[in-house]
């Protein structure tokens, strides 16, 4: 019962955050709505017994990624966008996106309900030791690849964000 309650509570917050992000005028407000959405998703993770991922979600998404976004938005000091009507091409692309999502949702919404919902057997709960066991044994190679990716992106970000420097004597 409590899981259902938290699911609908956090689920609606996450959706509201997403909708507001779609319609926001000011990027700062958009970032904050997205933070609400991320926190709600962390709450959903808690409802799924995955406290570890919930904590990491808050730390990395809400605490690091979105702070970085906010920092850049404040640094650029953007004006609020003037209202403008969408071009036909954008309306068409929005329609295509909505149709795609409708097609994805359709089997879930209208499929006949299975008579007996298979009861999930929680043999391996997602605690830190269990996740670590799988991550560092079975998925050691993807883990290493991701670490390399992080290194590369760090170097790339520093290179991109540096002011172009004049060479000496020119």
């Amino acid at each position: 019962m409590s899981e259902a309650l938290s699911f609908y509570f956090f689920g609606s917050i996450a959706l509201l955050g997403g909708v507001n992000l779609l319609f926001c005028k000011n990027p700062v407000h958009g970032a904050l709505f997205l933070v609400c959405s991320f926190l709600a998703i962390a709450g959903l993770f808690l409802g799924l017994n995955s406290g570890l991922l919930a904590a990491i979600q808050v730390m990395v998404y809400a605490g690091a990624i979105m702070v970085l976004f906010l920092f850049v938005i404040l640094l650029l000091n953007l004006e609020v966008e003037p209202h403008q009507w969408m071009s036909p091409a954008r309306v068409a692309s929005a329609l295509v996106a909505i149709t795609t999502i409708g097609l994805v949702l359709q089997p879930f919404l209208f499929a006949p309900k299975p008579a007996v919902e298979a009861e999930p057997s929680l043999v391996v709960p997602p605690t830190a030791p269990n996740v670590a066991e799988v991550l560092f044994r079975q998925y050691a190679l993807p883990f290493e690849v991701v670490s390399l990716l992080l290194l590369v992106s760090m170097v790339g970000a520093i290179h991109l964000a540096r002011r172009p420097q004049r060479t000496e004597g020119v």
């Binding site: 406290g51 570890l52 919930a54 904590a55 808050v58 730390m59 809400a62 605490g63 690091a64 702070v67």
Partner: peptide, 14 residues
């Protein structure tokens, strides 16, 4: 809880 110190870090980052 199991995630004690992570909770401290998470709340701090908020």
């Amino acid at each position: 809880v199991d995630i004690g110190i992570l909770l401290v870090l998470a709340a701090g980052s908020i």
